[in-house]
Structure formats: C-alpha cells, structure tokens
Design a protein around this nucleic acid. Sequence first.
DNA 1: ATTTAAATGTTATAATATAACACTATGTAA
DNA 2: TTACATAGTGTTATATTATAACATTTAAAT
Lengths: 129, 129
Amino acid sequence: MHTLSKNQRIIFDIIDKSPEPMKAYSILFNVQKKGIKAPLQVYRALDKLVEIGKIHKIESRNAFIACQNSSCQVSKATAFSICESCEKVTEINNSSLSKYLSNFKDKAGMKYSKYNLEFFGLCKKCITK
Amino acid sequence: MHTLSKNQRIIFDIIDKSPEPMKAYSILFNVQKKGIKAPLQVYRALDKLVEIGKIHKIESRNAFIACQNSSCQVSKATAFSICESCEKVTEINNSSLSKYLSNFKDKAGMKYSKYNLEFFGLCKKCITK
DNA sequence: ATTTAAATGTTATAATATAACACTATGTAA
DNA sequence: TTACATAGTGTTATATTATAACATTTAAAT
Ligand SMILES: [Zn+2]
Ligand SMILES: [Zn+2]
Ligand SMILES: [Zn+2]
Ligand SMILES: [Zn+2]
C-alpha cells in the first residue's frame, strides 16, 4: 500500500472532495494557502496520483477526478460518462464493459495493455430540461 | 456533401498526407508557406474538420489524424490504437466494437450520443524490439 | 552510516488554445 | 439584383495547460 507524500495528500484530498473534475490551475489556486505555490508542484503530484490509480485524467477536459472504484486497480482500464450540458463526470464501473474491452483484439493482432473510454451525452437532470 | 473552404482544404490535405497524427503548431509551421500565419486559422479549420468527421482528435496526444474510415459517418463513435513506443496511431474499424459501445447503457440509464476510445499498447514492430 | 530513490522548491519557458474585432465571401430569398 | 443571413478569413493579443533545468531535502534500503 502506497503512502502519499505531503503534496500528494493535499492535492488528492482536494480532488477527492470536489464534486466535479478539477483542472490543474484550479487545484493550484486552491492549495496556495497550504504552501504549494508552483504549477510544477501540482503537476508532479498529479502525475504520481494518476500513476498509482488514485485519480484519473479526463482527457477530453484536461481535468482530474478521484477514482470512484474504491482504490481502483484498474487505472489502466478507465471509462467515464460525461454530460455535455452540465459537465458532470462519472466513472463507469461495469464488469461486462471492462471484460469486453480488456479482451478486445484488433485485426492486426495487437494486444492492448491499457484503454481509456469517454462517453458523451446528457445526464438525467439535463435531459429533462 | 460538404465542400471544404480554402484553409480547411489546405489543413486537411497536410493531415491526410501525414503518416502520423499532427499537432496544431506543427500544422501551422507546415502551412505558413501557403499563407496561413496564425494559430487561430489552424484551430478554426481543425474545429470544422472534426465537426464534419474528416479528421479526429487524439485526445491523449493533442493531435489530429485524418479519418481512416472513408468519409467516416461515425465521427461520434471513434476508437484508436496507440503504440506507446513509436506513437503510431490507427483508427479502429470494428463493427462488433462499435455496436457494443453504441448500444451500451450504464446503470443510471444514461444513453450516450458519442464516445471516444483510446487503446494503448505496443504495435507489432515495437513488440519485437 | 552510507547509498539510492523519491519528493520538494524555485525560476523560467514551452506548448496548446481562445477572445475580440474588423472584414470578406457565399448562399438564399424577396 | 438587392437585401439578408451564414460561414469563413485575417490579425493582434492573451489565456490556459504543461515541462525543462537545477539545487536541495526527505525517506527508504542496504
Ligand atoms: Zn478508477
Ligand atoms: Zn448534465
Ligand atoms: Zn473516422
Ligand atoms: Zn510501435
């Protein structure tokens, strides 16, 4: 089990508390009172947190979200739903989907070690508006 | 059928000829001799080309690739394989995969209008090295 | 205690992307 | 063919996202 360093802890906590994905410079702004002053301090912590699967990057949004799969072992197999109206993002935890994708082989016979999937649409709230 | 404007044509052609995904500022550098001088001219053409499905953005790489599915109607359902060693990117055209994903519904009952999937691994060339 | 790896702090800079505004070309319909 | 609407262009400035380089400190392993 990995122990987070001081900066990693600070930055993980703020992402974990956030109801929505956070962008790096928004994180920076929010942790300046805790002594983290430079973008690089944020990006280094983000890199590590992504690497160990505590957070994921939402590539289409350049934003970061805490893993919602209780200490995700699957940082290499991620899927998200994204509402294009309110920007709500949810991590999808669906074993059928992850099995299908983990076993997927293309024609070229290439076997994949990792994937990231982003679904876009409207969430329930936004559909009824 | 959509007719490309002058800038759109220039920028599509250079992406289409490229054996690898191109980044916006690399495109800019390459089209300066054709009179396109500013980032915004490139980004505007890119936005339109993405919108009409002539190119796709590889989100994890901030790069653009021409659609490889002969005038793709599926700019809203994209899948790519990415070699993490040589950075070769290929658009996946697999009807089983696209059916599975297009019909996917999550627990919350959210129906998706769009998805983007990126697989990562090693291509054949790079495996044998 | 010594060595190694990981993390930090700091300044500067690179790379990616958009805002705002004036203008031009193109298509559509009276 | 004139009026109107829509899409595209050119330009300058600026915002946003991310990394390079280097010195120092902390934590872990032998
Ligand atoms: Zn997760
Ligand atoms: Zn919503
Ligand atoms: Zn395509
Ligand atoms: Zn390769």
